[in-house]
Design a protein around this nucleic acid. Structure first.
Length: 533
RNA sequence: GGGCCUGUAGCUCAGUCAGGUAGAGCAUCCGGCUUUUAACCGGACGGUCGCGGGUUCGAACCCCGUCAGGCCCGCCA
């Protein structure tokens, strides 16, 4: 059974109505890692819905969180916004400076600046969660009830956190962080509480009061999280292993949630995605691949498949080179399988059955809509990579695929070719996928040529010299050269690849040769014979 | 200090919860294919399941211990 179905099964034991939640703080550029959070939740929701449960999927945007520090992509001017809520400060412009104009004109804030492109990417990828913005929720009083309970029971909450997490909290700790008169959450000490006001002294020594019914502050994370479960009614949440560690925020949240009269949601802890050879993704170090960037390279199904095919507790190593090629290959291979007939085999071992079911589940969860987008473009990922490299004009690609002028390619196929071209010209396209015609043949390969092969090669040169430089005639020449000494065409192909590309195998040769000058090819073959003798 | 995850074929992993003859894909090699989608079809090669104990008729799986790698508990998913 696929992991998402297992979670769905667990949920069905708990009830029929569910809210699956995810949440991210938009403090910088989003990357592929964030996609795991959202897609894990989306897949659970989809599987649950599939199994007949009434389920809603939400994405909580933690835009009430403060700016922690001036990140490398920000101008020093942001220093004055440290401690301010990211949904309430201006977004950076291209130079990293605060864009006050847009902020005043239409409220374009820091959080939205990073969030909105991510939401667009999500839409492309088939994820349409209900968005819950934390800052607005505080301001409209959604947190009031839980905030009151927390403040009324501050000692008990403090005890839970200290006992479960094993860390000591300062004596003046209080389960509400007030905003000071400048809008900062930092350096503010609570001096008293009488609902709905929390009294404080800010870092400059000014006294004031924060009304928790109006969101003039926020709950610290370890209380904020269970409070959200409670007022939203979250029954299932996928979260990163940082929150899932023993003594982490899920453990404390579970107990705090009881104070709010709410049972903690079904948890699902997932591992991180790291960039191959470079460690964990991090927006601040620039060690990242964004969802938008990845979507320019491959179809969205592939990104879903990246998450679907791997169990959540498995770390994923990712890069936009060979990893992506292998992933796409794997996806294509599996999506063309007939799972139903495979599973109808009664003699399957339990292990084998599980393996097939998991692949089936992963493919199912990778499709964008119910519409089947993959089967109507029969060209494989590798083949398209080949065509895109050898055909400069799109029409030549369509010709090669056997599409006539009357039978034009689908938009989907056009889009895939466009992406492939983008990828090929990007830094990410792996060397081993590149088609390279060699100029000097490795001596060891040449010395392995048999006398039959040399004979075929000689014959091939003659045939090529006299043939029309078209794909068909070149093909015929190659085949003919082998037949001339009663050998399989394979022999002729092998020797051609060795001489032209330096390996015994290669992509369909004739169409590539038509793109190159005839004389160069013939000279190259001649040089091979010369250096052999 | 506390805890989590991972360790199975050259590579990527499934199988561990519900113990019952070690599984896939890729790679490699061989064969097939009288015109090659780096294709396709068929076959082969390949593992004392990190290590040591224990429970059991039977352990990759359960229990105890141990080694190695990664990570979390200072809200970077």
């Amino acid at each position: 059974m696929h992991w998402a179905d297992v979670v769905a099964l667990n949920l069905s034991r708990r009830g029929t109505k569910h809210i699956v939640s995810t949440g991210i703080t938009p403090s910088g550029e989003f990357h592929i890692g964030h996609l795991r959070e959202i897609l894990t939740g989306d897949m659970i929701a989809r599987a649950a819905s599939e199994s007949g449960l009434d389920v809603e999927f939400i994405f909580i945007v933690d835009d009430a969180d403060p700016l922690r520090r001036v990140y490398p992509f920000l101008d020093d001017e942001y220093a004055k916004f440290i401690g301010h809520q990211i949904g309430d400060i201006p977004a950076p412009n291209a130079d990293g400076k605060p864009d006050y104009q847009s902020y005043e004109d239409n409220g374009w804030n820091y959080a939205d600046h990073f969030l909105n492109p991510f939401l667009e990417a999500l839409a492309t990828i088939g994820v349409k969660p209900r968005i819950v913005k934390n800052l607005a929720s505080y301001k409209s009083g959604k947190f009031t009830e839980c905030a009151k309970i927390a403040c009324d029971n501050s000692e008990e909450i403090k005890e839970i956190i200290e006992r479960v997490s094993g860390r000591e909290l300062p004596t003046n700790w209080f389960p509400w962080s007030p905003l000071d008169s400048n809008g900062s959450l930092e350096g503010v000490s609570v001096t008293g509480y009488e609902f709905p006001l929390v009294h404080y002294t800010d870092k400059d020594g000014n006294n004031g009061s924060s009304d928790l019914t109006k969101g003039e502050g926020k709950l610290p994370w370890r209380i904020d999280w269970p409070a959200k479960w409670s007022w939203i009614g979250v029954t299932c949440e996928a979260f990163g292993k940082d929150h899932g560690a023993s003594g982490g925020s899920y453990d404390t949240g579970k107990e705090i949630s009881q104070l709010f009269g709410y049972d903690a949601p079904q948890p699902l802890v997932y591992e991180w995605i790291s960039l191959k050879g470079k460690g964990a993704m991090s927006s601040s170090s620039g060690n990242t691949i964004g969802p938008m960037e990845a979507l320019q390279l491959v179809p969205p199904e592939i990104l879903r498949y990246l998450i679907a095919q791997s169990k959540p507790n498995k770390a994923i190593e990712f890069d936009a080179g060979m990893s992506l090629v292998n992933l796409a290959d794997d996806y294509e291979r599996n999506s063309s399988r007939d799972f139903v007939s495979e599973l109808s085999d009664e003699t399957l071992s339990r292990r084998r059955r599980v393996q097939i079911e998991d692949a089936q589940g992963a493919i199912k969860l990778s499709t964008i809509d119910n519409a089947d987008r993959t089967n109507n473009s029969s060209v494989s990922f590798r083949h398209l990579a080949l065509l895109a490299q050898t055909k400069s004009e799109d029409q030549l690609v369509w010709d090669s695929l056997g599409l006539t002028k009357n039978d034009q390619p689908s938009d989907l196929l056009r889009d895939r070719l466009q992406k492939m071209r983008t990828w090929i010209s990007s830094e990410h396209f792996p060397d081993e996928m590149k088609i390279v015609m060699i100029e000097h043949i490795p001596k060891n390969l040449l010395s392995e040529l048999s006398s039959d092969e040399i004979q075929v090669l000689k014959r091939l040169i003659e045939l090529l010299e006299n043939c029309e430089w078209t794909s068909e005639s070149i093909s015929n020449s190659i085949v003919e050269s082998a037949k001339s000494i009663d050998k399989s065409p394979r022999l002729a192909y092998n020797v051609s690849y060795v001489c032209l590309m330096g390996s015994k195998k290669g992509p369909r040769l004739a169409p590539i040769l038509t793109e190159l000058p005839k004389i160069n090819i013939i000279n190259q073959l001649r040089r091979c014979i010369d250096s052999f003798q």
